[in-house]
Design a protein around this nucleic acid. Structure first.
Lengths: 251, 251
DNA sequence: CGCCGGTTTGAGTCCATTCAAGAGGAGTGG
DNA sequence: CCACTCCTCTTGAATGGACTCAAACCGGCG
């Protein structure tokens, strides 16, 4: 097995989570032509208004999608982790409507768009998996709209802490009950539509209520059920368990 | 031409806007088996947690996608108009993560999911068009996250007024410079993450600045360029003009 | 004519922001 | 090894934008 084939394994894992892929599907995915590029922390993978012709797949590290509004404020619109396809949207729609930036340093596999499109055309199950993946992204976006639009800061923060816990665990990057936040409080503020100062106070509030414990970036969830209640968190929107294959993760 | 074939014309129009479809593609779309259902104002098309097996295509009227949060507040996460496919997400993902509700009365064509999937499989251009359509939906969602997350009420409102103007015009339901808002101020508040009271005050503010004029639900945009500046509106995210075929709408 | 949903307006309150300053911690270079 | 710097986190006090509560107004319609 060539080293490059191994590297796309996380893509196979990701897609295989929602659609049952056979060994041929997996082999075809691993055989995709690609080139691994290392990115430094804060480096841009895609910039708004770019015209992309390739697709990137996150191999290691974390990235964010963000938009900058008129007064210079930033809103993070998505978090990407291992296995996520980072510029499918941009490469198919032509013009990037947002930027993708590394949150940590990490590697990204660059795949020619045509190769991915051809694969989707040849293998219906792979196409379905990518389709579902895109739709889950959309579902998460909708939840985030509701989160920043209608929840107060405590609920809002508790909600994303729950979301991160589950997503990190599913991606094999942490545990549901304890993980390392891959971002600063400032960046967390840009996820939540809050200032870093208020994020700090809100984290303290959650800690004071005994829901979480934290040391620097490490978050320990003391009482998952209660945190989920406070955060108005119902994992349905992550669609972790309504696919053909099910990792059976409860709320 | 049968009457039912005519009714799906708006779907052909919508999809044809982003991908150049040939007559065979159009014919196949119009030949989709479907059944037209009338819905009354406020009636639900899909309810959160439903398991959908059909897809709906908006023929006339407007619908919203929304989520209800813990304290009972509602957030509208999308607006749907003629030609929009309203439960593709839900039918492919299995469980509806949000509700779809009529904003006005209107007709929806109900199409069996399998027929649509088969069509996508048989006709790559149709599949690409649906794919692009889904990605544009995602792009709009991301813009809305930024809108509610990081813009103040005046900017936020001006932004959606611009978005509605363009989308209504493209759908052939109004003009860029003047249109009828299909919703109450309360509903507009649920789009913006604001209260109806504050929406009212903000509308007055925009009017006082001479950017818009309004009578009941009718909005006249006096100064598009300035409204776009105030609303931090850049139409890139609507991807109206970066497809193979271009209606060439500037901002 | 009277009802009812939607709009408008006012006054007071509160959640989150701004501004500002200090503390902690990791990395760098002398 | 320590001083220095930069970044992040923390805390306080004052401000402000949007909310709540409440009442009045308006227009369409039965």
């Amino acid at each position: 097995m060539s080293p490059s084939a191994n590297q796309l394994q996380c893509l196979v894992n990701k897609l295989g989570r929602s659609v049952l892929l056979d060994t041929e599907d997996a082999k075809a995915l691993l055989a995709l032509p690609h080139q691994v590029r290392g990115f430094t922390k804060h480096q841009y993978v895609v910039r708004e208004r770019d015209r992309a012709t390739t697709c990137g797949v996150m191999l290691t590290g974390f990235a964010i999608r963000h938009k900058i509004v008129a007064d210079g404020a930033r809103q993070i619109v998505a978090i990407q982790m291992a296995g996520d396809v980072v510029d499918l949207q941009n490469s198919i729609l032509g013009v990037a409507d947002h930027s993708v930036q590394m949150l940590t340093s990490g590697d990204v596999a660059i795949i020619p768009r045509e190769a991915l499109q051809q694969l989707a055309f040849d293998r219906p199950r792979v196409a379905l998996a990518m389709w579902r993946d895109t739709l889950v992204d959309g579902s998460i976006s909708r939840e985030w709209i509701a989160n920043v639009g209608r929840r107060d800061s405590v609920t809002r923060l508790a909600h994303v802490l729950c979301e991160f816990a589950l997503r990190l665990e599913v991606a094999g990057l942490g545990e549901q009950s304890s993980y390392e936040l891959p971002m600063t409080q400032e960046e967390l503020g840009d996820v939540l539509g809050l200032t870093s100062v208020h994020v700090n106070r809100t984290l303290k509030e959650l800690e004071a209520r005994g829901l979480i414990k934290r040391t620097t970036r490490d978050v320990v969830i003391n009482d998952w059920d209660e945190l989920a209640v406070v955060g108005d968190f119902d994992a349905t929107y992550l669609h972790l368990s309504d696919g053909p294959r099910t990792p059976a993760r409860a709320t």
